[in-house]
Design a protein around this nucleic acid. Structure first.
Lengths: 327, 327
DNA sequence: TCGATGGCTGAACTAAAGTTCATGCCAGAG
DNA sequence: CTCTGGCATGAACTTTAGTTCAGCCATCGA
């Protein structure tokens, strides 16, 4: 396209976008056929002559959603404006996550939902509107007890039972077994087997993402020891999903802790709808690792975190290297 | 429309205009009906959340630009297709003016910008994309209050502050002082002096051009009385820039009103970059007068107005006389 | 001179956007 | 508790936009 055509295209585009005329009207005005005008406008748009700005915070969030969803080929991504300041934007994540979950429940398509763990998920459930869901069942995806078999105060499933009135199955086992032998014994128990089968049959998985920095929640709650954390870190872990520690390429690291985790394996749910709810200053690396694993199909996060992630993507793309090659 | 709705609308609009999804797809994505999405996008557009710029320029417009720029030796001239029919082609001027101003801000070279007044400038600012410009300052070039010291609803500077988040200085004085004595008192005030100094230091001046016909905006808004208007008309005025009424040769007319204007004088900004944004059926004479003054160095206008102006130039040239001799 | 090629055109069709209208729901008054 | 008005909703319809395809014309080489 050049010269005369370009000029006409610009005029047609102006009349269409700024003037708000229909293509028919423009055609009459310029003495051309409507099809011609249609093509001119398409050309102008194609050539980047038309620039559109959409205002509003939401607009920026949507831009981030799109970038992230496209980069990891997610089914969806939800980015909400970050409110509050702390490390964990719990308010935002709770509201956004609850909104998502509420919609899922409201739609009523998913009858059996697998649930992960963590502080964020706990908040999400707290935030969930108290509506009775008799036709839905929830199942815990990993051990629900602490190392010492005490009830886990952050066990999400109990709260869910309370809030939704739905049937909830929890895993009567610790988060991590003390040894592989212990784990074998645990897995051999009938009750646990049943829950595992149920977990495998779930139609949707909602999980949290853990990070392994100084604020690692698992450490704070005594789920794992400092020694264990050091071990997985040394093995290259940058994040954790469903009790599995992943390296930056999303592959489980080789470490005893990973083997001793009592819960459904990531391979077992690959390809099924898995949604992660996570965000916070410490989380970008962990989130990216979990997305790299390709197990996660949907992400609910906050704007600040999303922005960081997109910046990292961009930096990687500019470096021309690894990130891109991996695609 | 507020809050949640507005955010949703922005979201829908983004997905539609930037994301390029169909309304059907957006509906699915957001779990709403297509009709709802259609309405949300309409609302977003209505609320001015969507800004469209067209980069290219039609050949005829470019020709007019060249003629006008050459005739008055302007640094630049922008002519955009006239849309709509009314006296004031606000849509076109707003879009074209905002595009110009947006580019200036984007380039970031001008740190202090002087701003005039008028309905057109107001529309321009309304159309400006909401991007934060912390490094730019705007300063009003003339009194910002009405005769009765009420806030001027068309005061552009306040809207600018809102839109850009930049520091904005307004002139705490009426547009026209009631008497020369009053003016002297006003100008003696410290606060006003500071703003005047800032105004003189600006690196770019963006002004409107007023006409003094039946539709004179200043009359409609009660800035001036009919008697005053008659007076300046009698003195030969055909247009107004920054509160100064000019005759057809671009010289301020001798009239009390001109003396009582509270604002920067044209002489003070002569030689600096002064850009006028103006157009409309009533405006050609006023625009030509302001260009004759040699103060204006750039013009943003619409095609119909530009055409009229060029016709007048040509008529003058053919008449062999005055217009040309003056060059 | 002829035919082949390629690009441009607009009629006709398909898809999308926009509008209308009957309906149901909720709030507030009676 | 019931009635009423207002408003939001989505199915059905209309208008507008976008795409396809057969035909046309100009160009170029044989």
């Amino acid at each position: 396209m050049q010269g005369n055509d370009r000029s006409l295209a610009a005029r047609a585009a102006w009349l269409s976008f700024i003037g708000g005329y229909t293509q028919e009207e423009i055609a009459q005005k310029l003495g051309l056929s409507r099809v011609k005008i249609n093509r001119l406008i398409a050309e102008a748009t194609e050539a980047g002559l038309v620039r559109v700005f959409v205002e509003g915070n939401a607009a920026e969030c949507v831009a981030l959603e799109d970038r992230i969803a496209a980069h990891w080929k997610l089914d969806f991504c939800s980015v909400s404006p970050t409110v509050g300041e702390g490390l964990l934007p719990l308010r935002t994540l709770a509201a956004a996550g609850a909104h998502y979950l509420h919609n899922v429940l409201e739609r009523g398509e998913k009858k059996l939902i697998g649930i992960g763990h963590g502080r964020t998920l706990d908040e999400v459930v707290k935030y969930l509107p108290r509506a009775k869901r008799p036709s839905v069942r929830f199942v815990s995806l990993l051990g629900s007890l602490t190392r010492h078999a005490a009830a886990n105060p952050f066990d999400v499933i109990h709260r869910l039972a309370e809030v939704t009135g739905a049937e909830c199955y929890f895993m009567p086992a610790p988060f991590f077994a003390d040894s592989m032998e212990d784990k074998k014994v645990l897995l051999g128990q009938k009750g646990l087997k049943d829950v595992f089968n149920l977990a495998r049959a779930a139609e949707l998985y909602v999980v949290g993402i853990g990070e392994i920095g100084a604020h690692a929640h698992m450490l704070a709650t005594g789920m794992i020891t400092e020694k264990e954390l050091r071990e997985v870190k040394l093995a290259g872990a940058v994040g954790e999903v469903l009790g599995r520690f992943l390296d930056k390429n999303g592959r489980p690291v080789h470490a005893g802790l990973n083997e001793r985790a009592v819960g459904i394996k990531l391979e077992e749910i690959e390809g099924k709808p898995v949604v992660a709810i996570a965000g916070g200053e410490d989380k970008p690396q962990a989130i990216m690792a979990s997305l790299e694993s390709r197990v996660i199909k949907g992400l609910v996060t906050d704007e600040a975190t999303a922005k960081t992630i997109v910046e990292i993507i961009d930096a990687g793309a500019k470096a021309g290297g690894l990130q891109k090659a991996k695609r």
